[in-house]
């Protein structure tokens, strides 16, 4: 039972992070390798707002969420916007560079020590006993619920929202989208904003649950196989991919070797690339596009 809980929690973490990869990839065909760093930045933003809104945790969290949305939009406006029209690979390498820059800056500002934003906000994190005998910490439970809400929201937005449909349209044929009056820069900025927002929420919740260290970017990177196994352009895929990766990781830690935890997601990724490179739910033409 505890094993199942662990799988669900880890999968929820990966899923919440992976949807950020999918959003940006789907709209602009760019793979954002700075996603892990942006996610960690979100967690540090919470630490910063916790200090300025002392005694008002809800305001602190709200401020951090708004700030992370702004960060995503700013990243697009000031950096990635310049890379539109360049080779996709150059854009990807730019995100690698951005990640390196952010990592350095975050250590400079907040130091590399472990921090606990949960304590700063005055939250306790009691474990909840589940009916089947498993236990789950409060923030892990909140994380699972958040992931469900985020995915539900994204599905509705992309299917029925005007800007959601426009985002999908821009992803399929940017030229035609521009011709139909859609401002591509606005769509891309929205995608970056939403992606950073969801990533940051994951970062914040992980930090609230188990503290914040500079190794959090590794979690961000491990969520990437989840996005790819499911198919980089599919949200359903990201959800299923996260479940597969999460299960594989928890089970191999439990039954084989704890050291495997960092490598299992990538082993699954390699297996997937060999068998079905476009992922479980991805579109096959994607392979030729990049």
């Amino acid at each position: 039972m505890q094993l199942a809980v662990n799988i669900v929690v880890l999968s929820a973490i990966y899923a919440l992070i992976a949807c950020g990869y999918v959003l940006i990839y789907r709209v602009s065909r760019v793979l954002n390798l700075a996603h892990g760093e942006l996610m960690m930045l979100g967690a540090y933003l919470l630490l910063a707002t916790a200090a300025s809104f002392a005694g008002n945790p809800v305001a602190a969290i709200a401020a951090a969420v708004v700030l992370s949305l702004a960060v995503g939009i700013l990243v697009y406006v000031f950096l990635m916007r310049k890379m539109t029209g360049e080779m996709v690979l150059a854009a990807v390498l730019t995100t690698v560079a951005l990640g390196t820059l952010l990592r350095g800056l975050m250590v400079l500002i907040w130091s590399a020590q472990q921090q606990y934003p949960g304590q700063a906000l005055g939250f306790a994190n009691p474990a909840i006993a589940l009916p089947g005998g498993g236990r789950i910490s409060t923030f892990a439970a909140i994380l699972v619920v958040t992931t469900a809400l985020v995915y539900g929201g994204l599905f509705v937005f992309l299917r029925f929202g005007r800007w959601g449909v426009r985002m999908r349209a821009a992803g399929q044929n940017p030229l035609l989208a521009a011709q139909r009056g859609i401002n591509l820069h606005a769509v891309y900025a929205l995608a970056w904003g939403l992606s950073t927002l969801t990533g940051s929420m994951a970062g914040m919740l992980i930090a609230l649950d188990s503290g914040l260290t500079s190794s959090m970017t590794v979690i961000g990177l491990k969520a990437f196989p989840a996005a790819l196994v499911g198919g980089l352009d599919s949200l359903v895929g990201a959800l299923v991919g996260a479940l597969i990766i999460g299960a594989a990781e928890v089970l191999s830690i439990q039954y084989i070797d704890p050291l495997l935890s960092d490598v299992v997601p990538f082993l699954v990724l390699i297996a997937m690339l060999i068998v079905r490179p476009w992922g479980l739910f991805g579109t096959r033409e994607e392979l030729d596009r990049v």
Partner: peptide
């Protein structure tokens, strides 16, 4: 490439500005 191939007809009519 005059329509968005993966969108439905109705979505193709929703997307334009």
């Amino acid at each position: 490439d005059k329509v968005f191939p993966n969108l439905t007809v109705i979505e193709n009519l929703t997307a334009p500005f």
